[in-house]
């Protein structure tokens, strides 16, 4: 398998954990809340997903447990920032540390066990194409994630629900004045984002690399947060960014396989360096940032 085939075949799966988490966070941020605890929620989802899948030999149950775990942790966040009107940055960090700790605590006795991943499903016709055919042979979760991205795009841009969420994010006081209940809507968005983050973690630990190891999320939650900024809160751009990062993380492996003499630790830095540069390029256009940034992002809402 040559490098191009390898990257094309694997980039969607590599992108999926970051994409799922980023899509959830995008909805949360559009409702005006910044949840920095993504890394912790993903870690908790990864641990719970692996434990459940290993114990019951069912990926579906694993994803369910991870989704519930992520949502549960995010609702604790919601209680702190919405109920107690706390600083969202600090609360997000607290949830991140708590989630990482819980994942290590629960996952401790499941280290160095393995499970099987998910079978790949080929899209008929498209997968027979030359060169790009390998792109269309993926597991079910990858396909569902892409479908979910479409659903989120349609909901955010072309439905009443999307309009309400955006209204709450752009101007919560106006939204309240016309009769929308700001806090329940934000709470639902946070729970949705938490569930997706948990599922994203479970995908990393039960499908992409089917094993649990402490610290396995390795910054992917933070990259997902950066992807939301990179995508300027637009679904299509977030998806594009995630695929770009998926390809990039595989480029690392192909460079090593090609025998290029760069230490692996330095290659592992590439996604982090690219994240910084990418943020700089997108954010330096201050006018575009001001147009796209959610107006009430990070501001507590009090009547």
């Amino acid at each position: 398998m040559n490098a191009v085939d390898f990257i094309l075949a694997g980039m969607l799966a590599a992108a999926t954990p970051m994409l799922l988490a980023a899509l959830g966070e995008m909805v949360v941020e559009r409702s005006g809340v910044l949840n920095l605890g993504l890394e912790g929620m993903m870690a908790l989802g990864a641990a719970l997903g692996f434990i459940t899948t290993y114990t019951y030999q069912s990926h579906a149950l694993g994803f369910l447990a991870a989704g519930l775990g992520g949502a549960g942790l995010s609702l604790l966040f919601a209680l702190i920032v919405l109920g107690f009107v706390a600083n969202q940055v600090a609360a997000g960090l607290a949830i991140g540390i708590l989630g990482t700790g819980l994942s290590a605590l629960f996952g401790k006795s499941f280290e160095s066990l393995t499970i099987s991943g998910l079978p790949k499903l080929a899209l008929p016709l498209l997968s027979d194409l030359p060169v790009v055919g390998v792109l269309f042979v993926q597991d079910a979760v990858v396909w569902l994630t892409i479908a979910l991205a479409l659903a989120i795009w349609a909901t955010m841009n072309h439905s009443k629900l999307g309009l309400i969420i955006r209204a709450v994010g752009e101007n919560p006081h106006a939204a309240r004045a016309i009769g929308f209940r700001v806090l329940p809507i934000r709470c639902a968005a946070i729970g949705f984002g938490g569930a997706l983050a948990g599922i994203a973690g479970a995908y990393a630990s039960t499908v992409y690399t089917p094993l649990w190891a402490d610290g396995m999320i390795a910054g992917r939650g933070w990259i997902a947060l950066a992807l939301v900024v990179f995508g300027t809160w637009q679904t299509g751009r977030v998806v594009f960014g995630a695929f770009l990062f998926g390809a990039l993380s595989l480029g690392e492996l192909t460079t090593q396989a090609a025998g290029v003499n760069i230490p692996s630790q330095l290659l592992a830095c590439v996604p982090y360096i690219v994240t910084i540069l990418m943020l700089a390029v997108i954010s330096s256009n201050r006018r575009r940032m001001r147009l796209n940034t959610i107006a009430s992002l990070g501001q507590p809402f009090e009547k």
Binding site: I80, G83, F84, N87, L93, A94, I97, L98, G101, L105
Partner: peptide, 13 residues
């Protein structure tokens, strides 16, 4: 870590 995370959560509340 769990204890520290809980501590900060409760403090912020």
């Amino acid at each position: 870590w769990v204890f520290q995370g809980l501590l900060l959560c409760f403090y912020l509340a």
